[in-house]
């Protein structure tokens, strides 16, 4: 545990000592801010129109701003995750510092957990950028808090899962660009899987649908907290980190 935190702290230091952390946070803040601006402007325009036409039904901030916005955030995260995870082990392998870690009295799984945790914490910082905008909605509107929290939980779980997959891919190569590129395509694929099943409901497409990261996020983003989805994310994280530790082990036998 102490070792895991040690590695995690070191990872965070490395992120914040290099431009990666700031670049990722700035990019996310910019794009999310743009999405927020558009969504809010349209919302305000529509609510004026609705009032002028004499509709009494109040419009819902949760449904019309926050939900699409956080869905948008999950799409952006898809692009940011490879940038965060690509260097985790690939860089250690390239510079040879992996030898230091692997010859220290520390278990492989502690190295992996520490690195993954560091990446997740950076990802949380990135998500934190979006809270500025969402907080504004709470200051001037009256959205429900609980569904927002569930949606954020969904974002965090989705990010943690993709980062775990990214960690695994980073273990398999010493080239950061390759690690980043492959991670991006794997994330994209997991995302696109839901398209495949849009108009189909056979047993095969149900399996495919289950594997899609997005289907599970959609439930959470509606504020539906079901064990099914949470278990999916946790099992994906566990599985990815497990094969990462296997991959680390195989490094010893192959090199």
């Amino acid at each position: 545990m102490r070792n895991t935190l040690l590695i995690c702290k070191k990872e965070l230091k490395s992120y914040f000592a290099s431009p990666i952390a700031y670049a990722v946070m700035a990019l996310f803040g910019l794009i999310f801010g743009f999405g927020f601006f558009t969504a809010t402007r349209d919302f305000v325009r529509f609510s004026f129109q609705a009032q002028m036409m004499g509709q009494q039904q109040p419009m819902n901030v949760n449904d019309q701003i926050i939900r699409p916005l956080l869905g948008f955030a999950s799409t952006i995260a898809l692009f940011l995750v490879p940038m965060i995870s690509m260097r985790l082990l690939a860089e250690e392998k390239r510079t040879g510092t992996i030898e230091l870690l692997m010859t220290s009295p520390i278990r492989d799984i502690e190295i992996i957990l520490g690195k993954w945790l560091g990446a997740v914490i950076l990802y949380l910082c990135v998500l934190g950028m979006s809270m500025l905008n969402v907080a504004m909605l709470f200051a001037w509107g009256k959205p429900d808090l609980k569904p927002v929290l569930v949606a954020y939980l969904g974002l965090i779980l989705q990010g943690a899962t993709l980062l775990a997959i990214g960690t695994f891919i980073s273990t398999t190569t010493r080239n950061q660009i390759v690690a980043g590129g492959v991670t991006f395509f794997v994330c994209l694929l997991l995302w696109l899987l839901s398209w495949f099943t849009a108009f189909d409901s056979g047993p095969f497409s149900q399996v495919v649908n289950y594997l899609s990261i997005v289907t599970h996020f959609e439930n959470l983003s509606k504020g539906v907290l079901s064990t099914k989805d949470v278990v999916f994310y946790f099992s994906m994280i566990f599985f990815s980190l497990f094969i990462t530790s296997r991959a680390m082990e195989s490094l010893r036998w192959r090199s």
Partner: peptide
């Protein structure tokens, strides 16, 4: 591993760390 100190051919250092910071990290490791 507790009983060895190892210097590989290229020193396994993190260029983005300060010397004291690095030694503290390795020591704790």
């Amino acid at each position: 591993k507790k009983r060895i100190g190892y210097l590989p051919e290229t020193p396994p250092v993190y260029p983005e760390m300060e010397v004291i910071e690095y030694l503290t990290f390795v020591g704790q490791l």
